[in-house]
Design a protein around this nucleic acid. Structure first.
Lengths: 153, 153
DNA sequence: ACGTTGATGTCAGAACTTTGACATGCGAGA
DNA sequence: TCTCGCATGTCAAAGTTCTGACATCAACGT
């Protein structure tokens, strides 16, 4: 089969739970869980909140833009957006003069819902930030980005 | 019209995409995507591979053990395990002399499949590791754990 | 001995996400 | 001009995961 591992073991750790990937997944799962719990009180799912946050910052994003921004497929984003539309939190143009992308905007209700949920989510992020020395946080962000790019994203 | 920020901004970044949570999610999504793609050639999903890896290291784990180890619910783990059982990659005791947990073990086929997939996954992890200076990796792992605990996991 | 608590396995249903496929619209190059 | 490539929006189907609920089993304290 393979002449697959001519190099020494890729990492010193024997235990799988010591691998970077495992820790990354664990941290991400913890964050997702905390956000889920916090957002439930605001009747929002994590993907829904993510979309609202992105739209607040960059009004007029399209379905595909939001899919990329929330790391899901266009189809998934479409479902999420339908929920937000039905809840009256966003509006989407029904036509456009150029291209196919239909720009989306927050409604007043969407703004309000977002602002309510935001404090809950920011409190979670605050917990993460406080747990890490400020200087390390800079390096941490850089390293996360570096790894992301190394993975081809 | 909100008194929306009674507290000072929890973090210096204005852009949501600069937040730790966002970067974490992004890195995790990139990893998941890379693993998905690599594992597809071995007819395994990420959760399936995770279970095999855990079982290889700690034979006899139960459904609930694997659920905790892969960060999903017992119900999800149950479905994954059913798939692995149907594929003949694992065996689960049908009874036990103590308690309710039914210990699970890899079959020879499971071992083989795992070993094949492992090199593909390790290559991905290798890409991540190589992109980060060795000294920083230690700090990175520690910080990921610290954040995870700060989130209550 | 007995009830309580906690962990586990399981079923059923809903919700979410993905893969696959197809139609539409813009832009670059023959 | 016209075709090709590419991005987008959308539908359908399958797979995955979750919430909620219930039964079983061991350990603990009364």
């Amino acid at each position: 089969m393979e002449d697959r591992a001519p190099v020494p073991p890729p990492h010193p750790a024997e235990d799988v739970t010591e691998h970077v990937g495992y820790r990354l997944k664990k941290a991400s799962a913890a964050l997702r869980g905390a956000m889920d719990k916090a957002l439930r009180e605001h009747d929002l799912t994590v993907p829904q909140y993510s979309c609202l946050e992105l739209l607040d910052e960059q009004p007029g994003l399209s379905n595909a833009d939001l899919a990329r921004g929330t790391f899901v497929t266009r189809q998934s984003a479409n479902v999420v957006l339908r929920g937000l539309k039905d809840a009256g939190l966003i509006t989407q143009a029904t036509s456009t003069d150029h291209g196919r992308a239909l720009p989306i905007h927050l409604t007043a209700a969407g703004q309000q819902r977002l602002h309510g949920a935001r404090s809950a989510v920011y409190a979670i992020e605050q917990r993460m930030i406080e747990s890490i020395p400020a200087q390390r946080m800079t390096a941490l962000l850089a390293d996360l980005d570096t790894m992301t790019e190394a993975l081809g994203a």
